[in-house]
Design a protein around this nucleic acid. Sequence first.
RNA 1: CGGGGAGUACCUCAGUUGGUAGAGGAGUAGCUUUGGGAGCUACAUGCCGUGGGUUCAAGUCCCAUCUCCCCGACCA
Length: 490
Amino acid sequence: MAVAKITPKSEDYSRWYQDVIAQAELAEQAGVVKGCMVIRPHGFAIWEKMQADLDRRFKETGHKNACFPLLIPMSFIEKEADHVDGFAPELAIVTHAGGKPLEEQYCIRPTSETIIGHFFSKWISSHRDLPMLINQWANVMRWELRTRIFLRTTEFLWQEGHTAHATHAEAREEVYRMLQVYADFAREIMAMPVICGVKTETERFAGAIETVCIEAYMQDGKALQSGTSHDLGQNFGKAFDVQFQDTEGKRDFVWQTSWGVSTRLVGALIMTHSDDDGLVLPPRLAPIQVVIVPIFKKAEERAAVMEAACRIAAELRDDGLAVELDDRDEMKPGAKYYEWERKGVPLRIEIGPRDLQSQSVMCKLRIAAADERGRPKKLTLPMADLGLSVGKLLDEFQDFLYQRALDLRAAGSTSLDTWEEFSAAFEDDRSGFVYAHWDGTAETELAIKQETRATIRCLPLEGHGPAPEPGKCIKTGQPSERRVLFAKNY
RNA sequence: CGGGGAGUACCUCAGUUGGUAGAGGAGUAGCUUUGGGAGCUACAUGCCGUGGGUUCAAGUCCCAUCUCCCCGACCA
């Protein structure tokens, strides 16, 4: 029986990643538009769950949503020197409209600091207008040379927070507050542990004075930058003349921040939890948390089983769970099991004639140990108070996934002190999180990258990575105050 | 943007020295089935990526171009 197969991770991780996305019907290459993807309903539903939770967190921290134009005048992009240097190679530019060449060309937004800077200068005149706390859910476009579905596509969806403050201290508080929001979201909702840290100058956002990030550990040992938060200083304030009068009547430029996460998070989710059987979703992000598969042979069994299945579905929905009752007649139960497992549904409930007798149901979690006969272990739960017991199972599964991801990261993380060990750790396809000393120079950073393909993902913040201790640079032997995080990255 | 590979049915692919386009799966209809990927019968399914060229004749040969995949460089 030829069934579409998922390439095992051990054989080819990149193929596995693409197979999981195809088999779970998350997304596909647009094909007709270079480097762009179509996010299919199941993939988009996951993004919507992410959006809903993040949006709540943004509002709880005082931000309001707005929406700015997709097209940005080229002159805007050019106003901030570092910004234009960073983004110029990736811009898609609109040269014609209405059948005529445009007097001033537009680029399709690669990010919105410039156009938002323009409007901030109109909206802000007094310290009373500050802080200005804006978020935008939008699509952006960056003309990437090499694309990977969800991880790096020409067009992607994201949110970009943009804020303006009266003091640098206040802006920096915002930068770190939002970084923490991202880290909390990753841990609590995605069940994905992250390392919070500061980017080196090389990796900093074009136009920022400091970039902080959350870095996640993928199953193959590579790092994925999963969110960034930038201290823009007064760079854009000066470029767009965003000034305010303080309480003493003095004029000053605002201090700005920006921060974002994108549909890349869906890729992060896949490479954190999924396995050779397909997608694995943490319950808090699963568009379908529970699927019910009814089982019957004869018509009279069917009626009784369906009646019970509908009742259970309604009860679970009343308890706030997202439930799918798979009542398709044309498909046998086994085929349904495989399909919903590929799609990552955390819990399956099977209900058949035997269960009606015993007033219980069979449950199987998406990741289950094998029983004595090598079959995935199933649990029997009584029908009474099923919502409670299922809710508990899902909570435990969410915790299990986080702990498993944390353990995997711990197993793939080391602190190294010699160049021999360090370069061996990144030989061939090897990667992992390596904490090592660095002399703080861009030259050394580049030399290490060229020799090992590992880069400095971040300078971990306090509480992330090993405790600070002085040492000697892994490459040059120069003194170093603390270890930094090295890894290959996506 | 450099190096490699590939585009033929919805999917995975076969297609010989150039001679009327194929298989398996999926799909549709019917029957039979249902506690871990069922079976039989019938029916559909094509701008052979696109554009040019060579030829009596091109999926096949030549040129160009687009897209995807892998490995780098560049980047969320």
